[in-house]
């Protein structure tokens, strides 16, 4: 195998990200979900800095640091505070048939890889083979949002999806311009605050964070 060690580490990180995406898909506990999300951020930061090192792109170091700070530390902390305040730390979600969901996930992975194959052929980056995994993570996070009924896991799914997109950007084109990245980071942070406020509002309105209750909001 002619792949240099940095390429191997990036491939490894990609595999771990996919693994975490599947773990999130099958995780019932909210607390573990947040920990997994934090881990995802950490691996994302590692892989970004490895990409930065191997491609000598200075700006990627900044985005790696930003990722580490925001996604591995700040957002999980906010989420932790949130679930403690909402007193849903030990909540367990009832989900139907996890193996079925995983099977759908498997199909999504196959689909994503096939989708990414022509694109990664064109890309000249060292990380091009991981594009399929990045797209798979995005799709899996989407699937996770679909299968959850509670608010917090949905938000985690949303954030994980953003992680997947970020990974896709780094692997396909060595990341987006710094301005765009900063903007997205800010968006995510602000979005998180707004959603946090929403949680309290939803809870006071419905006495629960289960989004099934929102079905009542439609016009009769």
């Amino acid at each position: 195998m002619g792949i240099p060690i940095t390429g191997q580490i990036i491939n490894m990180c990609a595999a771990l990200l996919l693994l975490i995406a599947f773990a999130m898909l099958s995780q019932r506990r909210i607390l573990s979900l947040i920990n997994l999300f934090s881990l995802q951020g950490l691996i994302l930061a590692i892989s970004t800095s490895v990409v930065a090192y191997s491609s000598q792109q200075q700006h990627l170091y900044y985005s790696a640091a930003l990722t580490l700070l925001l996604k591995a530390i700040v957002l999980p902390m906010i989420l932790h505070r949130l679930i403690r305040k909402l007193n849903i730390k030990w909540d367990v979600e009832t989900m139907f048939n996890i193996p079925t969901i995983m099977l759908v996930g498997l199909a999504l992975v196959v689909f994503a890889f096939n989708l990414a194959a022509p694109i990664s052929q064109m890309a000249a980056t060292i990380t091009r083979s991981t594009l399929g995994i990045a797209m798979a993570s995005v799709l899996l996070s989407f699937l996770m949002m679909i299968t959850r009924s509670k608010a917090v896991p949905q938000v985690v799914g949303f954030l994980a999806m953003e992680n997947g997109l970020f990974f896709a950007a780094t692997s396909a084109t060595y990341g987006m311009p710094m301005v765009v990245e900063l903007g997205i980071a800010l968006d995510v942070l602000v979005g998180m605050f707004i959603l946090g406020i929403f949680f309290f509002q939803i809870r006071t309105a419905f006495d629960s964070l289960d989004l099934k209750h929102m079905e009542k909001l439609k016009e009769e």
Binding site: F22, L106, S129
Partner: peptide, 13 residues
């Protein structure tokens, strides 16, 4: 499923 996924990853990556 994880094991199958591993095999798949090998075929793809």
């Amino acid at each position: 499923l994880l094991a199958v996924l591993g095999l798949l990853t090998h075929f793809l990556l």
